[in-house]
Design a protein around this nucleic acid. Structure first.
Length: 657
DNA sequence: ATAGGGTTAG
């Protein structure tokens, strides 16, 4: 039950919204003549909503300007990525203070022009703490942690913000030991310094450290509580999140949104919906969270309803719905939606491309470049994974070259996708080479390499690499354990698999997802532990059980287990639409037991409900062109030669075995 | 009251 909730963020937003409405009208400011504060406020509002021209117009019109007015102009231009205008104002302003310098400096740092920022810093006549903090933060955001530390040690007076910046800087670079050491010798420990360390721990997956810190803190503010709630909700531990949520003295919009996110992540749509409805005020992120949850839970209709109800939408809202269409495999719908979007971002393109598992994805990628968008890490990663599922090695290598040229040679996301591509194409060694050459690694790259070994049946290599990952101080996540379980399943390492399944929960506080349970069903089923596998399948939330039952059914087929085979089949065949492959499996189980009548009746049933076994299809890329083949397909004019070559290959392969 | 640095939700 929610009691009083305060939503300061909302009120601020609402106020800004009303201000915008007033200032965006073409009419002159109302009488009596507004004072200088009014003008400055108006200029800020215009800049915040991207109305740069209007802000300049007000600046020209205002009768008297003060130092703050000039600083507002610099800040406004910086916010709108207009550095040359910002610098021009800075040059011509009659008087400057520390604010003027630090605003401009921060602007340059945010554009990646860190040298220019440093040049400005050197010229500041009287530097205060904020100037120093701005420069240090600039270095950190540009990946220069060493420079940041140098300056940090040099600065004559530090405040608690300085410590926060430096500690979270180390954590952004995964340097946990350095962050901890700095925290230990920090003499100014405000709540926000604790918060910086705690949120860094959460970000890196050091949940135990975050928890310990949380319990040690005597003065907690809203951010402290929210950070810990986020930690629990991201890791699916909703009972703990609920406990904190109920206990915290003052909830805000962020607390509720974090809870909603957690509920949705766990598929608990009802709890999320309830909380969402109870919230007296929402800002736009809350709506997007709720919508994203609907989409992830396959409820596009509900997401669309919310989309139409929400008072204001941003590009994330549009992208979320786009993701919904893509997830439902409705690419016609996705494309129509994409065309309707008032504004698209790189993410929109990436989402659309990711939906196409065919050459169309590559065509779209070309169009994206042609329309002036710069492929980012997400794009390259998506395109590489499409190449992977097409086993289009030629295309993949081309994208690899582009990635190097565009400066993504050491990007962990892009390189991980490349490793996966090579893995899909069977070139494990090429993947290893990419992995070895990386300047830095993260959980994603480790996962990619572990998955490679897992998929190729090199279970021992996968498990060894996992050990190295842990020794390197990286925290495994859901994907890591999925690969490990898969590796164990392939090799029939039942004990090891069970051990990892336990460890992921007990040592790493990860709540298994349906796919982990499915993997356990596979692991146990393949090795003939059919009844244990059955128990695992029953632990999966009903909506996500189907795959597990399919897995169990095929295990029953292998081990000729009729009793559980029928049980599993019953569950699978309830699923819509009817799946021909499953009927075939069950019928085969009957057949191997000599129960021909049952087998025949299943075949008849299959015919009745119109289920067909999906036709198998394979394809190959030759010199950039894709050729696909289905059974009994004679359309390729080289079919005779192809069959001849296949015969030759079969002879060679048999010679090996 | 209006301008600058850090930590929390998609």
């Amino acid at each position: 039950m929610l009691t009083r909730i305060r939503y300061p963020g909302y009120f601020r937003y609402h106020f800004e919204f009303r201000s915008l409405r007033v200032y965006s009208s073409e009419s002159k400011p109302p009488a009596p003549r507004p004072d200088i504060f009014w003008w400055n406020d108006a200029i800020n509002s215009c800049f915040r909503s991207g109305q740069v021209e209007r802000a300049c117009q007000l600046f020209e019109e205002m009768p008297h300007k003060n130092l703050v007015t000039w600083n507002c102009m610099i800040s406004g231009f910086v916010k709108n990525y207009k550095m040359s205008e910002a610098h021009r104002i800075f040059d011509v302003m009659p008087r400057k203070n520390a604010v003027s310098w630090s605003v401009l400096l921060t602007g340059y740092a945010r554009c990646g022009r860190i040298e220019e920022a440093r040049h400005l810093f050197n010229r500041i006549p009287e530097r205060n703490v904020v100037c120093w903090n701005s420069m240090i933060s600039g270095y950190i955001n540009n990946g220069k942690i060493g420079k940041a530390r140098e300056l940090f040690d040099e600065m004559p007076v530090k405040n608690s913000v300085s410590w926060s910046i430096m500690i979270s800087g180390y954590l952004k670079n995964r340097l946990v030991a350095e962050a901890r050491a700095l925290f230990d010798r920090s003499y100014l420990r405000s709540t926000s310094v604790y918060n910086a360390l705690m949120s860094g721990y959460v970000e890196l997956g050091c949940f135990r450290d975050a928890e310990n810190l949380f319990h040690r803190m005597t003065e907690k503010d809203v951010i402290t509580w929210n950070t810990m709630i986020t930690c629990y909700s991201r890791t699916g531990r909703m009972e703990l999140a609920e406990c904190l949520f109920d206990k915290m003295p003052e909830k805000d919009i962020i607390s509720s949104t974090a809870m909603i996110y957690g509920y949705l992540q766990n598929g608990n749509v009802e709890a999320a919906r309830k909380l969402f409805k109870e919230m007296p005020n929402r800002d736009i992120v809350t709506w997007n969270t709720m919508m994203g949850g609907y989409v992830r839970n396959g409820m596009l209709e509900d997401a669309l309803r919310l989309f139409s109800e929400m008072p204001e939408r941003d590009v994330v809202s549009w992208n979320t719905i786009l993701q919904g269409y893509v997830q439902q495999n409705d690419m016609v719908g996705a494309y129509c939606w994409f065309e309707k979007m008032p504004q698209v971002s790189e993410t929109s393109w990436n989402t659309l491309i990711s939906g196409y598992r065919s050459e169309e994805a590559l065509v779209l990628y070309c169009r994206m470049v042609k329309e002036g968008f710069r492929p980012d890490q997400g794009t390259l990663s998506v395109v590489l994974s499409v190449c992977g599922s097409l086993v289009a090695l030629g295309w993949g290598r081309m994208v690899h070259l582009y990635a190097i040229r565009a400066g993504y040679e050491h990007d962990t996301l892009v390189m991980s996708s490349l490793i996966c591509l090579y893995s899909r194409c069977g070139l494990i060694h090429d993947g290893v080479q990419v992995f070895e050459c990386l300047l830095k690694r993260d959980a994603i790259t480790w996962n990619a390499m572990i998955a490679t070994y897992a998929y190729h049946g090199s279970a021992i290599e996968a498990l060894k690499l996992f050990e190295k990952m842990i020794q390197g101080g990286f925290n495994p996540d859901h994907a890591t354990f999925l690969s490990l379980l898969l590796a164990c399943a392939h090799k029939g390492l039942v004990d090891e698999g069970c051990w990892y399944f336990k460890s992921m929960q007990e040592d790493w506080s990860l709540v298994p997802k349906p796919e982990h349970y499915s993997c356990m069903v596979d692991l146990l089923g393949r090795s003939g532990f059919i009844s244990q596998a059955y128990e695992f399948a029953n632990k999966i939330p009903v909506d996500s059980q189907t795959t597990a039952w399919e897995t169990l059914l095929s295990a029953c087929r292998v081990h000729g287990n009729l009793e559980f085979g029928e049980l599993a089949a019953k569950r699978v065949l309830h699923a819509q639409p009817p799946d021909g492959g499953m009927y075939t499996l069950l019928s085969n189980i009957y057949a191997t037991k000599g129960m021909w009548e049952n087998a025949a009746s299943i075949r008849a049933l299959m015919k009745d409900c119109g289920a067909k076994k999906e036709t198998g299809c394979s394809w190959i890329e030759v010199k950039g062109e894709m050729f696909s083949f289905v059974s009994n397909d004679k359309s390729n004019h080289l079919m005779e030669e192809i069959c001849q070559e296949l015969d030759n290959l079969s002879i060679i392969i048999e010679g090996f075995s």
